[in-house]
Amino acid sequence: MELFIQQVINGLSLGGIYALIALGYTMVYGIIELINFAHGDVYTLGSFFSLAIIGLLDASGELKGWPLFGVLALTVVGAMVLCGLVGVLLERLAYRRLRNAPRLAPLITAIGASFILENIMQLWKGPSPIPFPSVVPNVVWSFHGVNLASNELLVVLAALGLMTILQIFIYNTKLGKAMRATAQDRDAAQLMGININMTIALTFFIGSALAGVGGFVSGVYYGSTWFYNGFEAGLKAFTAAVLGGIGNVAGAMLGGFVIGMIESLTAGFISDQWATVAVFVLLVLVLIFRPSGLLGEVLPDKV
């Protein structure tokens, strides 16, 4: 029983990270029907940027109160902005020209972009995992053999909070409405005076910024990062987005937590080795039996 509760806690925090990445996948897919394959690497970049900013600020684990808050705010905002810009750049350079090409084409450039980003990160910080400083003080509470760390809470709260803000943004602001309109019918949105290029760029910015936060919290949570992290995490987050119903923000969040849970429960009760396999098997099963996901709608074929 303790093991079960412990694995659920682990799964939720793991899921929070996947959820943060999944939001970007789902937003981009919702608006231009592209699996932004490089998105996982933008997430890794988030942790790399955070590392760089923390390094610049020369922050250590001893900070408390306002200085700590300041460092955290600067790091998170910095990582968000930088990742957002990388996302916008990706869209501009690798995807925009292919917006009307068959879907295969931008998917291939996305894979190419992913390899380029990974290689840049490998050259930047080397091929081995890098330690991530414990800027956030971690408190661990224990009850009856079950541990709950404040870092785990941080991940879950960050994910839930950002998703809520995103929901409010999409449904209650003019820009959010422009995004929804563009997602539904690009041509009609354009006729209504919506700047399509701007709106799509904004979508990439927000999605990538969220992945940036994901990168930061994953660094804090795992205490390390690695240039190749984004490949597997990205794939799992994409699974989460599909599971929740691609194009659906709340679904991505739900999917993220479900995937995190499955992974940690498989690791806890079967074996670590099979955790990844379990997630991919789930991906295959969802795509085959319910491609519209848990919260998505079913669309008929177009003729």
Binding site: I35, L107, E232, Q273, V277, F280, V281, V284, P291
Partner: peptide, 27 residues
């Protein structure tokens, strides 16, 4: 089971298989 899927989903599923197979040989 997978070829009924749309093109981009098929790509991801095949990627998933590509990960599962060597992992299975490893396990």
């Amino acid at each position: 089971p997978t070829l009924r899927l749309r093109g981009d989903y098929l790509a991801i599923v095949t990627l998933g298989f590509g990960e599962i197979v060597p992992q299975t040989f490893l396990n």
